[in-house]
Structure formats: C-alpha cells, structure tokens
Design a protein around this nucleic acid. Sequence first.
RNA 1: GUGGCUAUAGUUCAAUGGUAGAGCACUAGAUUGUGGUUCUGGGAGUUGUGGGUUCGAGUCCCACUGGCCACCCCA
Length: 424
Amino acid sequence: MTSTNLQPLPGFRDFDPNLYALRTYLFRTWRSVAERYGFVEWEGPTLEPTDLYLKKSGGELPTQLFRFTDQGERDVSLRPELTASLGRIVAANYLNYNKPLKWFEIGSCFRYEKPQKGRLREFVQFNVDILGESGPEADAELLALSIDCMRALGLSSSDFVVRVSDREAWLSFAAQYGLSQEQTADFLATVDKLERDRPEVSEEKFAALGISRERVVSFIQNPPERVSPRYEAVLTELQARGLADYVQLDLSVVRGLAYYTGLVFEIFDKAHSLRAVAGGGRYDGLVSTLTDGALAIPATGFAMGDAVIAHLIEECPAARALRDAALAPHSCDVYLALAAAEMRPQMLLLASTLRDAGVRVDLPLTPTKLAKQLRHAERLGAAYTAIIGSEFPSIELKHMETRKSEKLTLEELICTLIPRKASS
RNA sequence: GUGGCUAUAGUUCAAUGGUAGAGCACUAGAUUGUGGUUCUGGGAGUUGUGGGUUCGAGUCCCACUGGCCACCCCA
C-alpha cells in the first residue's frame, strides 16, 4: 500500500484526468445553463481578510475557517463561501454595472469540517445571484435556472424536488404572537431545526416564546391558502414557464442563516437520502450589512455544490447515462499509426499540418507494434486512425467505429479530416 | 468537537492464530503490417505506522495516522 504521505490532506481531492473530466462536465453544464439565462461569470479571490467573514455572524463559522496569519501579519482566511466576496465587489463598483446584475461563479470554497458523504474541506460551488432587483420575478428566474441545471444533468421531477418557502409567512406568524425581532430570530432557528431536534427539545424552545409546537407543525402541514404575496407571484411565474411540477411548498424550509429575508428554497433528492443539493434565497440586507449601511442592494441567489450533485447523478440511471456519454474518451480526433519507422518525418509533418488546422492528433512517441498502436487509438477514443507505412504518400484511413478503411492520398486525407473538425 | 466501522498487489476483494491468494488492470508471447475474442506466461506486497499478547499475528489487544459513515453544523 502507498504510504500515507502520498495522499492529499483530509477532505481535499486529487483530480486525475478521469475525475477532472467529471468536474469539467459539471462546470460545462452549469456554465451553459447560466449563459442561457443571460448570466455573466465573475470570480473573486480565494483568500480574503478574515474580517469579511466575521462581520456577518458568529456561531461556528470562525472555527470552520481555514484561517492563518500571512507574512504581512494580516489575518486571512480561505473563502468558506462566495456571497461575502460578491457583496464586497458589487458594493465597490455598483454604479458601473447595468442593473440588474445577473452574475454566476464557479470556484472552490474551503471549510474546516469533518469530511463525510457530500461534505469535503475543499469543494466547488456554483453560485448564481441577481442583485439590484427586488421583485419576485427575480426569485422565479433563479428557481427556474436551478431547475434547468438539474434537467440539463439528466435529472427529472422523479429524481429531485425544490422545496420552496417564504420567511415572510413565518414573520406574519411570529407577529401574531407579538415576538420581538430577537425572539423572531430564535423562532426561525427553531423552525429550521424542527425536523432534526427531538420533539421535546423543540417543544421547549417554542414554549419559551409562548408558542406551542403543535401550532407550528400544523402551520407547516396545513399552510394558509395565501402563503405570501411573493410566494404566489413566484409560483405564477414558474407555472407560466412550465416548471411548477418541480417545486413544492414546504414551510419547514427556512435555511439556517440569519441573513435570508424572504423567499428561500432547497433542492433535495426525492428519496431525501442525501444532503441538500442546492440552497438559496433572498438576502436583501446583506450588502447593507457588509458596507455598514453605505449601500443597500436587494439580492437573491443560490449555490450548488459539486459533491452532492455527483452522488445524485450516480444514483439516477438517466443522469448517469448522460454523464458517462459525456465522459467517454474523445481526447483525439485522429491517431497517426506508424507502420514503417522510416516514415516518421512524413508522419510528423502530417501531424503538424493537421494540428495547425485544429485537429486533435495523437501519435506514437516510441517504436510500437502496429497492433498496439491501434489498440491505443481505440482507448483514446480516436474517431480515425491513419496508418502511415511504406506506401506513403498513400495512406490508409481507418474509421474506428465501423472498422472500415479507405486508401487515400495525403491531400485527400487532409481534406477529409480538416473539414470534419471545422464543422464540429 | 463526539461516536461507529474500516486499512491486504495499481485496483476490487479473499485468506478456522500456522507457507499471503484471485478477478480486473498492466506486461510478454501465440500473431515479424491491422485493435474489441481466446489461450499461455510474467512483474508484482516488510498485510497503513508503532508497540503488545503468543512457540507462531494479515488475523487478537493498545496507540497513532488515514479512509468511510453518522451526530454537530451546513455561510
């Protein structure tokens, strides 16, 4: 067995070409859906001043930062999330951008947590945000985008569900009991944990606020006819988009974070055997908090991690098939097999000609038996193999899938391969 | 931070406390210019690390390290 020092740090991953291909597949899909929706890509620094993260909360956050002092005595942290950086960047240049901002980002985040299924210390997040637009239409646009990401990965409404809620509904509920702002925060936190806490525990927490657990559970199970104006508007928008089947009202979703202000949602696998695939919501107060009130920008967004979605794809046959098709080897358009060693210079010139035209060409680096060369071409997923032998400039071009071959002149070969590439 | 399970060849896994094995992968040949099949051979390991019990430890015990999983948390 390999010694332990050949392994990456706990919760970190090595991406060999096979794993990297999966990563690329996810990124490509995310990016393409976001671009279909008119979002533009941005990126922030991986390392930020620790203050940026301490500003908006306490809790366990500080203990889960990869935090250190740099050579300039600065207190810095690897980013545990993107929203703070986004807020900073937008706040610094807000007037320069057309409103609303429809921005997305794909990049690594770091949290010092105990690794387990769907949770790592370095993971990739797909972040999508709309800033400068307070209407429910923006929330609906994001929900639709998140659903289309799932669909683009081959997942259907039988594989996942988007649980949508609106904190406004709970704020009205809390208002009936005359809860103070602080009490309301405690109340929301308890609702968030309702599914996880033992009944006696939440019973006690609610009792401290003068509310019975039964009333809360009943509110979730029998939601009011009119949940909230925003929720209804969002649902109308999704119905018009033909996406209403993917969403489900679930008032038990409130999201742990204090900064969410309105509509919130989470995407789960239908079996609910995994952690949340994605989550997000409206956070109209965050930019204001980050800028100490200098700038108030309404915002709504969500994030999707790479680890959980990879598990979900693995569990869903249609998604798995789509992924495997995307991951099939295809790193090479044509393999140049050398059957007569003295023709190597001619082969290399041909390789250069094709490569200059953008054709992906691979070739043997050392003398190798022809049978092995063909087998290698097969494994590379080469569409064609051109056999360069003593008959050069007559060349045999073999179509790997049909196993049929034709004899071509050098010019014919080049004319055959280059247009195929250009049109693809 | 707490707890459970686990660590054997590149990989997936075997091996009543008694000589460490198999499939796949890799590689060579059968086949000296034609790949997916088949057959025959080959390289492979101080059994994660360090202690202990025992005549004898891959196997039992302890510690450490890593991995998986759950709790916690989930920005």
